[in-house]
Design a protein around this nucleic acid. Structure first.
Length: 443
RNA sequence: GUGGUCGUAGCUCAGCUGGUAGAGCACCGGGUUGUGGUCCCGGGGGUCGCGGGUUCAAGUCCCGUCGGUCACCCCA
């Protein structure tokens, strides 16, 4: 068998990187719980009709199929697909368990998702998302829309990564504005305007006109899209464009609340950016996007929004709002620039040197004693020369080597970074707090 | 899914218009009968991503494929 090669879009990390990933996940998780979000995990698959319920993303869904399924069977309406986000499975879960949940229900979910897209840096076919959502029965108070950026802001700021800015918009602003202008197809306009950064205002205007807008309408759309403020001053800027529409007014009011709340609790975190659209078509109001300083061109690292109708069946309706941190994207981008480091490639804090194979039992006892105080310890693999045993630790970044004392002498422990070696008792020795676990740092 | 670009030792790369593979670092051993990181000496390691074609001869040309990356699409 020839040497296995990587699978495009399915990244695998070495232990050092996996420890960094786990470190970030843990910080995110604890922030989510700090805000009272309850843990949830849903199965990896959903029935296709659930996944496709909301749109034309079908091409991206990986379908699950048995190798030996009957080729003559009639086409399977219950075919399964891997979920491509965590919001749709969550909506299904809420409907399925609505009788057992208390509302408003807030949960977090940190899981892999799959999309059949062409991979590139920061874009994968299998990747990890850390998602929070709040849903309520019938009506979800708007203040949850203002809470989402605060939670995610705290989570992101707890990570050793560059500063992030949450960009926020509201579908009602755009739709109301376009309708107020007399444009028929707000979704189409939104899609076009969303390309502003990539193709520029001239091309966007051309496209809008090509799709039936007048020059004046196109110009107004562009003016709206170019509004970007860190406070609620965008409201006046929009008003000056002279479009009047009820939905627009409602959207402006909502968006202003999101921005003002963020500025009150987390200055510098948020920016109203009236050109962002978000792809997923189930968003109906607030939409979030997040740029990471220095990595703006690689797209959003954290997105979400308000969905009014995602979870509904019959006369039951559970509107929600949520946002998802793209853990894999953040890692991929930062790893690509060596912008995340870890102090060692293994969890081990102490290697117990082995003087002779016959003393392994004694070394195991030392290790057990250290482990009983939660100090990660391993015993050297063989009774090699001490120089080699020290090198074993050094290559892995392990900070301490423990030397059992020869015939009656006390044990000693050596900090191989400084070279200092002192007497130590396995029953009481403690490492400095910063050496207990590998240290993850941004560069 | 469409198109562009790149792919030589673990890493960074050299290899002229085709003539049967090299450097630095890393790694291993010895100098140093047991405490590393300096220095000296020595060593292992590549079917040049993979497959096919052209040619007397291909890392070097052509095609395909896989992988990385970029653009489109879409999006974490």
């Amino acid at each position: 068998m020839s040497k296995p090669t990587p699978l495009s879009g399915f990244p695998e990390y070495l232990p050092a990187q996996r420890m960094i990933e786990q470190n970030l996940i843990e910080r995110i998780r604890s922030t989510f719980e700090l805000y009272g979000f309850a843990p949830l995990e849903t199965r990896a698959v959903e029935p296709m009709d659930q996944l496709l319920r909301k749109g034309e993303t079908s091409k991206e869904v990986y379908v699950l199929r048995r190798l030996q399924e009957d080729p003559n069977a009639e086409k399977d309406d219950n075919a399964l697909g891997l979920h491509f986000d965590l919001t749709v499975p969550f909506a299904r879960f809420v409907l399925e368990n609505s009788g057992k949940l208390q509302f408003p229900f807030r949960r977090y979910q940190i899981q892999k998702v799959w999309r059949g897209e062409r991979p590139q840096e920061g874009r994968y076919r299998e990747f990890l998302q850390a998602d929070i959502d709040v849903v309520d029965r019938d009506n979800l108070p708007f203040h949850y829309d203002t809470e989402m950026p605060l939670v995610v802001g705290d989570a992101l700021r707890s990570l050793p990564i560059p500063p992030a800015t949450i960009l926020v918009n509201n579908r009602k602003v755009c739709e109301g504005f376009y309708r107020g202008l007399g444009l028929e197809d707000p979704d189409e306009v939104l899609r076009t305007v969303d390309k502003l950064d990539k193709i520029g205002p001239v091309k966007v205007a051309e496209l809008l006109v090509a799709r039936g807008a007048s020059a004046a309408q196109a110009e107004a759309c562009l003016q709206l899209a170019q509004i970007s403020t860190s406070d609620a001053s965008f409201v006046d800027l929009v008003r000056k464009l002279g479009v009047d529409n009820e939905l627009l007014t409602e959207g402006l009011e909502e968006l202003a609340r999101v921005v003002e709340t963020a500025n009150e609790h987390a200055p510098g975190l948020i920016r109203a950016e009236l050109k962002i659209a978000r792809g997923l078509d189930y968003y109906t109001g607030t939409v979030y996007e997040t740029e990471l300083q220095g990595y703006e061109r690689h797209g959003s690292i954290c997105s979400g929004g308000r969905y009014e109708n995602l979870a509904s069946s019959g006369n039951e309706r559970f509107p929600g709002v949520g946002i998802s941190i793209g853990v894999s994207r953040i890692l991929g981008l930062l790893f690509g620039r060596d912008a995340l480091t870890i102090s060692r490639s293994v969890p081990t804090a102490v290697v117990v040197a082995l003087p002779q194979e016959e003393l392994r039992g004694r070394c195991d006892q030392i290790a057990r004693s250290l482990r009983s105080r939660r100090i990660s310890t391993e015993v050297a693999p063989s009774a090699a020369k001490f120089g080699k045993q020290i090198r074993f630790a050094e290559r892995r970044g392990i900070p301490y080597v423990w030397f059992p004392g020869a015939d009656g002498e006390p044990d000693t422990i050596k900090d191989i970074r400084s070279g200092t070696q002192v007497e130590a008792d396995a029953a009481t020795w403690e490492p400095p707090a910063e050496d207990r676990t590998p240290l993850v740092q941004g560069v």
